[in-house]
Design a protein around this nucleic acid. Sequence first.
DNA 1: AATTCCCGCCATTAA
DNA 2: TTAATGGCGGGAATT
Length: 376
Amino acid sequence: MHSSSAITDSSIRHHSYSRKQKSLGLLCTNFLSLYNRDGIHYIGLDDAATRLGVERRRIYDIVNVLESVGVLARKAKNQYTWKGFGAIPGALQELKEEGLRENFNTFDGGNDNAKKDDDETLSNPSTGSQNDKSNPSSAASKSLKNDNRREKSLALLTQNFVKLFICTSVEMISLDEAARFLLGDAHNASIMRTKVRRLYDIANVLSSMNLIEKTHTIDTRKPAFRWLGLKGKVDNEPAYSPNHNESRKRMFGTDVTNISFKRNKLDLFTDGNSSKNTKMQNNDNGSSLCQDDRNNSKGETKQSSKSYQFGPFAPVSAPKVSENNSVKRVLDWESLASTYRPQYQNQALKDLFSHYQEAWKSWYSEVAGKKQLQIL
DNA sequence: AATTCCCGCCATTAA
DNA sequence: TTAATGGCGGGAATT
């Protein structure tokens, strides 16, 4: 049939499984390049899953965080409305106001998980549970368990994560810190681990949109994410503007179809040929030149083939302005503090985060006491 | 060893 | 009930 194989991976020792090509970030990039076009208004989940060659489940992940930032909007079952990057500014503004107003809306300090076990102090009944649907009043049937799901949703986590940046001017924070912060802190056990897993997922798609970027803390050690927001690439409606260059870590190939070997749990390809798995979705789409790129070291655009354009995000070109022109000078307690600790711009904000104070405080002492920041 | 995070089981919720 | 959603965490890939 077709000449040359499809999964021509030009890197990775031979044909092996590569996690990178299966990342949510890549998938999101492909999703974006697939739908961020002029005539797109609606997006069908089935269509997306099929075109991108992934299971439904993954689409939900992406769609949920994209919606959290305004790029998409749920319209009906199986159908979303494409709002575009132009909708981000407005969404962020809303999130900011919402974040400043009342304590992080539905956020719930000590969610009462059915986890026996000691619960966190900090009962934060608060939340009148803002109902945005309809039915303003009438039967005041509290949605007890109802919101419980929402509280754990990827969408909410995404918004809170974003609020952390836009409401606090705390650019640069590690996911571990973010998780601790977004929780009431002191969440021993797996709750924390799971939360961090989710944050990784979120961070990956936000990264693909260039809303955030992965870097390292000043003392260059722990990886952390920095807020980029609408920086330089602000646009109103036009899909892509010629100018605007940044750098995005993860750059990928052009192939939108995500086909490749599975993770093979109990299936070593000891001998030749696929045994029986290979359950790849039926990918239509004529072009399927798979090719990744072992991370271009030089800013070289590798895209080509078809006509895939990168939307509002960097078309890859500028190598990178500065990774960490670490000025690392005095590195005193204060500078670190300003980096990690949220700086309250006004009383309102301070008040807003008042109940997080101790979270930070404990985190502080924890880290300081350890041996991490000893430069005091 | 530690960090990153893919994969998909299966509980929930919607139709 | 079936189909659509989407928590959740085991454990493999990466660092």
